[in-house]
């Protein structure tokens, strides 16, 4: 099997172990990117409200999540 077909086979797998691992990995990647981007936005002077709007979440949510890790 070529690499491409292998990937396609895995992606369309109905095996929950594969599917859920994909979701979990995606979530971790998402969290990393979010933290990175929030930190970057803060460093560039964005307000929590602006960041929240861009992320389509409430200001409280984003502030609560990142106030400890991001200045």
């Amino acid at each position: 099997m070529s690499e491409a077909t292998e990937v396609a086979a895995a992606a369309s797998s109905r095996d929950p172990a594969i599917g859920l691992a994909g979701v979990a990995a995606l979530r971790r990647l998402l969290e990393s990117l979010e933290e990175l981007q929030v930190a970057n936005a803060r460093a560039q002077g964005w307000s929590w409200q602006q960041i929240a709007d861009a992320l389509s979440v409430s200001r409280q949510a984003v502030h609560k999540k990142y106030r400890r890790t991001v200045a």
Binding site: V7, A10, A11, S13, I18, A21, G22, A24, A25, L26, R28, L29
Partner: peptide
């Protein structure tokens, strides 16, 4: 493991 899982997507 994450790289593999993401590659599957």
């Amino acid at each position: 493991a994450d790289a593999d899982a993401l590659a599957a997507l």
